[in-house]
Design a protein around this nucleic acid. Sequence first.
DNA 1: TGTCATATGTCAATCGTTTGACATATTAAA
DNA 2: TTTAATATGTCAAACGATTGACATATGACA
Lengths: 337, 337
Amino acid sequence: MVGTTARCKGDAMATIHDVAKKADLSVTTVSRVLNNRGYISEATRTKVFRVMEELNYQPNEIARSLLRKQSNVIGLIIPNVSHPFFSELANHIENYAYDQGFKMLLCNSQLDPVKEKDYIEMLKRNRVDGIIMGSHTLQVEEYKNLSSPIVTIDRQISNEIPYISSDNYTGGSLAASLLVEKGCTKIAHICGNLELQLLANKRTEAFQTVMKENKVEHLIIQTDMNVFDQMQYEDIMKRLFEEHPDIDGMFATSDIIAAFAVKQCTAAGKRIPDDVKIIGYDDINAARWLTPSITTIKQPIAELGRKAVDLIMQQMNDEPFEVENILPVTIVERSTT
Amino acid sequence: MVGTTARCKGDAMATIHDVAKKADLSVTTVSRVLNNRGYISEATRTKVFRVMEELNYQPNEIARSLLRKQSNVIGLIIPNVSHPFFSELANHIENYAYDQGFKMLLCNSQLDPVKEKDYIEMLKRNRVDGIIMGSHTLQVEEYKNLSSPIVTIDRQISNEIPYISSDNYTGGSLAASLLVEKGCTKIAHICGNLELQLLANKRTEAFQTVMKENKVEHLIIQTDMNVFDQMQYEDIMKRLFEEHPDIDGMFATSDIIAAFAVKQCTAAGKRIPDDVKIIGYDDINAARWLTPSITTIKQPIAELGRKAVDLIMQQMNDEPFEVENILPVTIVERSTT
DNA sequence: TGTCATATGTCAATCGTTTGACATATTAAA
DNA sequence: TTTAATATGTCAAACGATTGACATATGACA
């Protein structure tokens, strides 16, 4: 069936003038009831609301934004919402922002620097009240003269731009220690590209420290997280177990990587956790419903999201704010250790 | 460290007037180079661009939107981005919308009717060019006089509002047939609430038809998908296997439910696929990286997203469009069958 | 009667940009 | 020399709402 609806163009929405005319009042009066200012009799108030209802009137927020110089929009730039960590973060950010009267524009940079820069400019053109940056493909300088309130997830840009992260060092330490405690003797750590200067690198630092302290044999494999190429993980895992069949412990920098580790172990006939113990990071929802469920370092995702929005609001209102915002992690033991 | 940055309020962004003044030109001329209209000498063109660069000028899209009566924003209302199916859909919608020059406002209704209605009104106040509805908690009437272009995912509202879905009937049929083929003799089907009048119900219809045709014992369990309560799935699965220990086949209406089925089977000591065969629906990314990887009905998520955006644009431009948009599914055999 | 609180109105400016109408140069081609 | 294309300018209206300043009218109370 093919159709063209009449309800598209042409039938412009009612304006405050239409409401005023139909209610036989001045626009000023209508605006007054809309904004609760000045003296309004109960009679006119109800009349105005009735007419608004009849005309299906919705105040034009674009016009308001223009006048108020405030859009009540927050921009969120992340690599990709389809990554569970970011989708959960986006969910919490949007929920909390909505509670605070903000809308959220979602931008998936796909970790493409050109796209990321484009998004930043787009958000500025649209006069968003703030930007939450979860994608970091640009040079530090590019973020500095951004003029709008900004918050960074998991990356320190400068001493002025606030950033949020989980306590990566403690997280890495907890994971490494648990593996050692459980008796692992050769432990692999899969992390992202360490040259990217992300705060997540502290997980690796902590891991190394614990390994050295306990004199445990270990190895570190960097992955190119720039590509959300799941095949890549499979290959890495496969090669890892071929080259080092005696690995009996793994600390992956995300639950997804941990899931791939589980997969390859199973494929290689190794039992989890008896032959190999695996720990992930993030505690995405999936960590619970995977089989076996994954032991992991839990990031407080909801709090991260709330903090991000709070920091935007604090900057908007010229309130003081913390530049460094490191939220505590906990270790959640499940079936892979 | 506590700080207050100077770069927040006060330092209003440069306007086209600032550019004109600094470039010693009229606003009209600047606007002309900005919009590529009329005669402009190469000299002034470059001068204008240089000054824009110097002032870090970004044209105010809010003002433009007001004048053009077009925001270039699409609103997406879904239950929850943290659900993998919706996060992948949102990702594709945003990507394609961006390519077409649109931004995307993300709204998580949390399947709360009040919130959903609120979001619809918010989007109208913000004069979005169209709304993609993936959340359906309201009565049909509420959606009808919406005035803005709208597209519905997986629900038919009326004969005028376009809707998109995967070929649910074929999907259900493929899944059911495969289980029968593979020799299952008692098959369970876990679906959502059938009273909700969603197109997904056709999966159940098809399942029943195939079961009856082949005279296979079967049972249907409705879940309250209104709650993204993962504990609920666990309980249902547990009870199911307790009450019907002889189940040897399952068709779940989502990969996540299938994952919980896998989990409970494993917990109950049943081997997959030897003792029980399981088929999911959606083919979310996780279906591949789960252990065992899940056999599932693949929805063409990217195409669904593109189609949704296309339908919004077609309505905007008063072009003819299809009301019914059913996209083909395929079955992807993995390790659970 | 005068004063004040209440209730509404008129008018104009503002937000930043676009656009049409029209004027005015300069330069180049006919 | 006339004509036309090129290049820029001025001016004002429009988009939809808010707001301050000010006027006016009614009713109540002192």
